[in-house]
Protein backbone atom coordinates (compact mmCIF):
# COMPACT_ATOMS: atom_id res chain seq x y z
CA UNK A 1 0.00 0.00 0.00
CA UNK A 2 2.73 2.36 1.01
CA UNK A 3 4.75 1.48 -2.06
CA UNK A 4 1.71 2.06 -4.21
CA UNK A 5 1.05 5.50 -2.78
CA UNK A 6 4.70 6.38 -3.23
CA UNK A 7 4.43 5.36 -6.86
CA UNK A 8 1.26 7.37 -7.19
CA UNK A 9 2.95 10.41 -5.69
CA UNK A 10 5.85 9.94 -8.10
CA UNK A 11 3.54 9.61 -11.08
CA UNK A 12 1.73 12.72 -9.99
CA UNK A 13 5.00 14.61 -9.69
CA UNK A 14 5.94 13.60 -13.21
CA UNK A 15 2.52 14.64 -14.48
CA UNK A 16 2.64 18.08 -12.94
CA UNK A 17 6.23 18.49 -14.04
CA UNK A 18 7.87 18.98 -10.65
CA UNK A 19 11.65 19.30 -10.55
CA UNK A 20 13.25 15.89 -10.40
CA UNK A 21 15.36 16.90 -7.43
CA UNK A 22 12.29 17.28 -5.27
CA UNK A 23 11.58 13.60 -5.69
CA UNK A 24 15.05 12.67 -4.62
CA UNK A 25 14.93 14.70 -1.45
CA UNK A 26 13.91 13.03 1.78
CA UNK A 27 14.44 14.17 5.34
CA UNK A 28 17.52 12.72 7.03
CA UNK A 29 16.02 10.87 9.95
CA UNK A 30 12.56 11.92 10.98
CA UNK A 31 10.55 14.96 9.97
CA UNK A 32 8.93 16.85 12.83
CA UNK A 33 5.61 18.60 12.35
CA UNK A 34 5.34 21.16 15.12
CA UNK A 35 1.78 22.12 15.89
CA UNK A 36 1.55 25.63 17.35
CA UNK A 37 -1.44 24.83 19.57
CA UNK A 38 -2.19 22.49 22.44
CA UNK A 39 -3.38 18.93 22.15
CA UNK A 40 -7.10 18.48 21.64
CA UNK A 41 -7.79 21.64 19.66
CA UNK A 42 -8.79 21.79 16.02
CA UNK A 43 -5.26 22.59 14.81
CA UNK A 44 -3.96 19.62 16.74
CA UNK A 45 -6.49 17.19 15.37
CA UNK A 46 -6.01 18.30 11.77
CA UNK A 47 -2.23 18.43 12.16
CA UNK A 48 -2.03 14.89 13.50
CA UNK A 49 -4.13 13.45 10.71
CA UNK A 50 -2.08 15.42 8.18
CA UNK A 51 1.16 14.06 9.62
CA UNK A 52 -0.16 10.52 9.46
CA UNK A 53 -1.34 10.82 5.86
CA UNK A 54 1.92 12.47 4.77
CA UNK A 55 3.83 9.68 6.45
CA UNK A 56 1.82 7.01 4.64
CA UNK A 57 2.21 8.73 1.31
CA UNK A 58 5.90 9.56 1.46
CA UNK A 59 7.28 6.80 3.64
CA UNK A 60 9.06 9.42 5.75
CA UNK A 61 8.95 9.07 9.50
CA UNK A 62 6.87 12.06 10.63
CA UNK A 63 6.49 13.03 14.27
CA UNK A 64 3.72 15.45 15.27
CA UNK A 65 4.56 17.55 18.33
CA UNK A 66 2.66 20.29 20.11
CA UNK A 67 4.68 23.45 20.59
CA UNK A 68 2.40 25.95 22.29
CA UNK A 69 2.94 29.58 23.17
CA UNK A 70 1.45 32.81 21.89
CA UNK A 71 -0.86 31.06 19.43
CA UNK A 72 1.96 29.64 17.35
CA UNK A 73 4.46 32.47 17.83
CA UNK A 74 6.79 30.39 19.99
CA UNK A 75 6.68 27.59 17.43
CA UNK A 76 7.39 29.89 14.46
CA UNK A 77 10.15 31.71 16.34
CA UNK A 78 11.82 28.36 16.91
CA UNK A 79 11.44 27.43 13.26
CA UNK A 80 12.70 30.80 12.00
CA UNK A 81 15.80 30.51 14.22
CA UNK A 82 16.81 26.94 13.44
CA UNK A 83 19.41 25.91 10.91
CA UNK A 84 17.53 25.33 7.62
CA UNK A 85 17.77 21.55 7.37
CA UNK A 86 14.25 20.83 6.24
CA UNK A 87 13.71 18.48 9.17
CA UNK A 88 11.17 20.60 11.05
CA UNK A 89 8.01 22.13 9.65
CA UNK A 90 5.40 24.02 11.61
CA UNK A 91 1.64 24.29 11.40
CA UNK A 92 0.03 27.44 12.69
CA UNK A 93 -2.82 29.84 12.13
CA UNK A 94 -2.02 33.15 10.46
CA UNK A 95 -4.12 35.36 12.71
CA UNK A 96 -2.28 35.37 16.04
CA UNK A 97 1.05 35.78 14.29
CA UNK A 98 -0.11 38.63 12.07
CA UNK A 99 -1.84 40.41 14.96
CA UNK A 100 1.38 40.39 16.94
CA UNK A 101 3.52 41.41 13.98
CA UNK A 102 1.13 44.30 13.30
CA UNK A 103 0.89 45.62 16.84
CA UNK A 104 4.18 44.80 18.42
CA UNK A 105 6.85 44.01 15.83
CA UNK A 106 9.65 45.00 18.23
CA UNK A 107 8.93 42.11 20.55
CA UNK A 108 8.93 39.61 17.72
CA UNK A 109 12.07 37.70 16.90
CA UNK A 110 11.13 36.98 13.31
CA UNK A 111 9.44 38.64 10.34
CA UNK A 112 7.29 37.06 7.66
CA UNK A 113 10.33 36.84 5.41
CA UNK A 114 12.16 34.58 7.84
CA UNK A 115 9.99 31.64 6.82
CA UNK A 116 9.59 29.55 3.70
CA UNK A 117 5.91 28.78 3.17
CA UNK A 118 4.86 25.31 2.09
CA UNK A 119 1.16 25.87 1.66
CA UNK A 120 -2.15 26.10 3.49
CA UNK A 121 -4.55 23.45 4.76
CA UNK A 122 -7.88 25.24 5.13
CA UNK A 123 -9.34 28.48 6.24
CA UNK A 124 -11.14 28.36 9.52
CA UNK A 125 -13.78 31.05 9.77
CA UNK A 126 -14.37 32.60 13.15
CA UNK A 127 -17.78 33.51 14.47
CA UNK A 128 -19.03 35.32 17.51
CA UNK A 129 -21.50 33.13 19.36
CA UNK A 130 -23.87 33.76 22.23
CA UNK A 131 -26.25 31.77 24.34
CA UNK A 132 -29.58 31.09 22.71
CA UNK A 133 -31.35 33.36 25.21
CA UNK A 134 -29.04 36.36 24.72
CA UNK A 135 -30.97 39.61 24.15
CA UNK A 136 -29.39 40.17 20.73
CA UNK A 137 -29.28 38.19 17.51
CA UNK A 138 -26.65 39.84 15.36
CA UNK A 139 -23.70 42.20 15.50
CA UNK A 140 -25.75 45.34 15.10
CA UNK A 141 -28.21 44.51 17.86
CA UNK A 142 -25.34 43.42 20.11
CA UNK A 143 -23.68 46.81 19.66
CA UNK A 144 -26.95 48.65 20.29
CA UNK A 145 -27.64 46.54 23.35
CA UNK A 146 -24.26 47.39 24.86
CA UNK A 147 -24.73 51.10 24.19
CA UNK A 148 -28.08 51.06 25.96
CA UNK A 149 -27.42 48.60 28.76
CA UNK A 150 -23.74 48.91 29.57
CA UNK A 151 -20.78 46.70 28.75
CA UNK A 152 -21.17 43.21 27.31
CA UNK A 153 -18.58 40.64 28.38
CA UNK A 154 -16.93 38.88 25.45
CA UNK A 155 -14.68 35.85 25.75
CA UNK A 156 -11.60 35.81 23.53
CA UNK A 157 -8.46 33.73 23.26
CA UNK A 158 -6.22 35.53 20.79
CA UNK A 159 -4.82 38.98 20.39
CA UNK A 160 -6.39 39.39 16.94
CA UNK A 161 -9.84 38.84 18.40
CA UNK A 162 -9.14 41.46 21.02
CA UNK A 163 -7.98 43.97 18.41
CA UNK A 164 -11.15 43.45 16.39
CA UNK A 165 -13.45 44.09 19.34
CA UNK A 166 -11.45 47.13 20.41
CA UNK A 167 -11.76 48.51 16.90
CA UNK A 168 -15.53 47.87 16.92
CA UNK A 169 -15.80 49.66 20.27
CA UNK A 170 -13.81 52.63 18.96
CA UNK A 171 -15.88 52.95 15.82
CA UNK A 172 -19.35 52.40 17.21
CA UNK A 173 -19.21 53.49 20.83
CA UNK A 174 -20.11 49.98 21.98
CA UNK A 175 -18.69 48.84 25.31
CA UNK A 176 -17.10 45.44 25.79
CA UNK A 177 -15.39 43.76 28.73
CA UNK A 178 -12.92 41.45 27.05
CA UNK A 179 -12.30 38.29 29.06
CA UNK A 180 -9.22 36.26 28.15
CA UNK A 181 -9.47 32.48 28.13
CA UNK A 182 -6.91 29.74 27.80
CA UNK A 183 -8.59 28.17 24.80
CA UNK A 184 -11.86 28.15 22.93
CA UNK A 185 -13.19 25.43 25.20
CA UNK A 186 -12.80 27.84 28.12
CA UNK A 187 -14.69 30.50 26.16
CA UNK A 188 -17.49 27.98 25.58
CA UNK A 189 -17.57 27.23 29.30
CA UNK A 190 -17.80 30.94 30.12
CA UNK A 191 -20.69 31.40 27.70
CA UNK A 192 -22.59 28.34 28.93
CA UNK A 193 -22.01 29.35 32.54
CA UNK A 194 -23.37 32.81 31.81
CA UNK A 195 -20.19 34.59 32.92
CA UNK A 196 -19.77 36.17 29.48
CA UNK A 197 -22.56 37.04 27.06
CA UNK A 198 -20.72 36.16 23.87
CA UNK A 199 -17.40 34.88 22.66
CA UNK A 200 -15.27 33.83 19.72
CA UNK A 201 -15.45 30.33 18.31
CA UNK A 202 -13.80 28.63 15.40
CA UNK A 203 -16.14 25.67 15.51
CA UNK A 204 -15.95 24.69 19.16
CA UNK A 205 -19.57 25.78 19.52
CA UNK A 206 -21.00 23.28 17.03
CA UNK A 207 -22.15 20.72 19.60
CA UNK A 208 -23.83 23.45 21.65
CA UNK A 209 -25.49 24.90 18.59
CA UNK A 210 -26.74 21.46 17.61
CA UNK A 211 -28.13 21.07 21.11
CA UNK A 212 -29.95 24.39 20.79
CA UNK A 213 -27.88 26.15 23.47
CA UNK A 214 -26.05 28.71 21.33
CA UNK A 215 -26.55 30.95 18.32
CA UNK A 216 -24.20 32.64 15.89
CA UNK A 217 -24.08 36.43 16.02
CA UNK A 218 -21.57 37.43 13.34
CA UNK A 219 -18.59 36.21 11.40
CA UNK A 220 -15.26 37.92 10.91
CA UNK A 221 -14.83 36.27 7.51
CA UNK A 222 -15.04 38.45 4.38
CA UNK A 223 -18.15 36.54 3.25
CA UNK A 224 -20.87 34.64 5.06
CA UNK A 225 -19.82 31.21 6.20
CA UNK A 226 -21.48 28.16 4.67
CA UNK A 227 -22.31 26.61 8.05
CA UNK A 228 -23.61 29.85 9.54
CA UNK A 229 -25.64 31.44 6.75
CA UNK A 230 -27.63 33.59 9.17
CA UNK A 231 -24.61 35.21 10.79
CA UNK A 232 -23.86 38.48 8.98
CA UNK A 233 -20.29 39.56 8.33
CA UNK A 234 -18.85 42.54 10.15
CA UNK A 235 -18.84 44.41 6.85
CA UNK A 236 -22.57 43.78 6.38
CA UNK A 237 -23.07 45.09 9.89
CA UNK A 238 -21.51 48.37 8.86
CA UNK A 239 -18.08 47.76 10.38
CA UNK A 240 -15.31 47.67 7.86
CA UNK A 241 -13.35 44.81 9.37
CA UNK A 242 -12.65 41.28 8.23
CA UNK A 243 -10.12 38.59 8.74
CA UNK A 244 -9.91 35.03 7.60
CA UNK A 245 -7.80 32.73 9.74
CA UNK A 246 -5.93 30.15 7.69
CA UNK A 247 -3.99 27.05 8.76
CA UNK A 248 -0.62 27.30 7.08
CA UNK A 249 2.57 25.30 7.09
CA UNK A 250 6.04 26.81 6.94
CA UNK A 251 9.65 25.94 7.47
CA UNK A 252 12.92 27.77 8.01
CA UNK A 253 13.99 30.38 5.45
CA UNK A 254 16.92 29.23 3.36
CA UNK A 255 15.93 25.57 3.31
CA UNK A 256 17.21 23.70 0.26
CA UNK A 257 14.76 24.52 -2.58
CA UNK A 258 14.54 20.82 -3.41
CA UNK A 259 13.45 20.17 0.17
CA UNK A 260 10.89 22.97 0.08
CA UNK A 261 9.52 21.61 -3.19
CA UNK A 262 9.37 18.04 -1.87
CA UNK A 263 7.74 19.13 1.38
CA UNK A 264 5.16 21.32 -0.29
CA UNK A 265 4.39 18.55 -2.77
CA UNK A 266 3.94 16.08 0.06
CA UNK A 267 1.66 18.57 1.80
CA UNK A 268 -0.36 19.14 -1.34
CA UNK A 269 -0.82 15.42 -1.93
CA UNK A 270 -1.94 14.92 1.68
CA UNK A 271 -4.39 17.84 1.68
CA UNK A 272 -6.00 16.36 -1.43
CA UNK A 273 -6.87 13.06 0.31
CA UNK A 274 -10.33 12.18 1.56
CA UNK A 275 -8.91 11.36 4.97
CA UNK A 276 -7.60 14.88 5.53
CA UNK A 277 -10.76 16.38 4.03
CA UNK A 278 -12.84 14.38 6.48
CA UNK A 279 -10.72 15.45 9.45
CA UNK A 280 -10.97 19.10 8.37
CA UNK A 281 -14.73 18.84 7.93
CA UNK A 282 -15.16 17.15 11.28
CA UNK A 283 -13.09 19.77 13.04
CA UNK A 284 -14.11 23.02 11.37
CA UNK A 285 -16.94 22.13 8.94
CA UNK A 286 -14.98 23.57 6.07
CA UNK A 287 -13.29 22.08 3.01
CA UNK A 288 -9.52 21.86 2.81
CA UNK A 289 -7.81 24.36 0.58
CA UNK A 290 -4.15 24.57 -0.34
CA UNK A 291 -3.05 27.90 -1.74
CA UNK A 292 0.37 26.47 -2.52
CA UNK A 293 3.75 27.78 -1.49
CA UNK A 294 3.57 31.17 -3.20
CA UNK A 295 -0.13 31.60 -2.42
CA UNK A 296 0.53 31.04 1.26
CA UNK A 297 3.25 33.68 1.26
CA UNK A 298 0.99 36.22 -0.43
CA UNK A 299 -1.84 35.41 1.98
CA UNK A 300 0.47 36.21 4.91
CA UNK A 301 1.66 39.50 3.38
CA UNK A 302 -1.88 40.66 2.59
CA UNK A 303 -3.07 39.61 6.03
CA UNK A 304 -0.37 41.66 7.71
CA UNK A 305 -1.43 44.81 5.87
CA UNK A 306 -5.01 44.11 6.85
CA UNK A 307 -4.04 43.86 10.52
CA UNK A 308 -1.91 47.00 10.42
CA UNK A 309 -4.96 48.82 9.08
CA UNK A 310 -7.07 47.25 11.83
CA UNK A 311 -4.78 48.53 14.54
CA UNK A 312 -4.96 52.14 13.33
Amino acid sequence: MRRFSKLAAMAMAVLIGAPASAEEWAPKGSLTLEIGFAAGGTTDVIGRVLAKVMEEQTGWNIVAENRTGGGGIAMLTGIAKRPPRGDVIGMGVNMPVLAKLATDPDTMAFALDDLDYLGTVASTPIVIVARKDAPFDDMRSMIDYSIENGPISIGFIALGQRLVMEKVARETGAKFNLVAGEGSSETMKLILGGQVQAGFSSGEHFPFEDAGDMKEIATTAPERVSWAPDAPTFIESGIDIFFDPVFFIATTKGTDPAAVAALSQALDAAVATDEVAEAVRNAIRNDPKNLGSEGARQMMLDGLENFIALNN
Partner: peptide, 9 residues
Protein backbone atom coordinates in the same frame (compact mmCIF):
# COMPACT_ATOMS: atom_id res chain seq x y z
CA UNK B 1 -12.64 13.77 17.23
CA UNK B 2 -10.33 11.66 15.12
CA UNK B 3 -13.08 9.08 15.09
CA UNK B 4 -15.56 11.74 14.03
CA UNK B 5 -17.29 12.29 17.35
CA UNK B 6 -17.60 15.66 18.98
CA UNK B 7 -17.96 15.43 22.75
CA UNK B 8 -20.60 17.87 23.89
CA UNK B 9 -24.06 18.11 25.38
Amino acid sequence: MIHGMQPGP
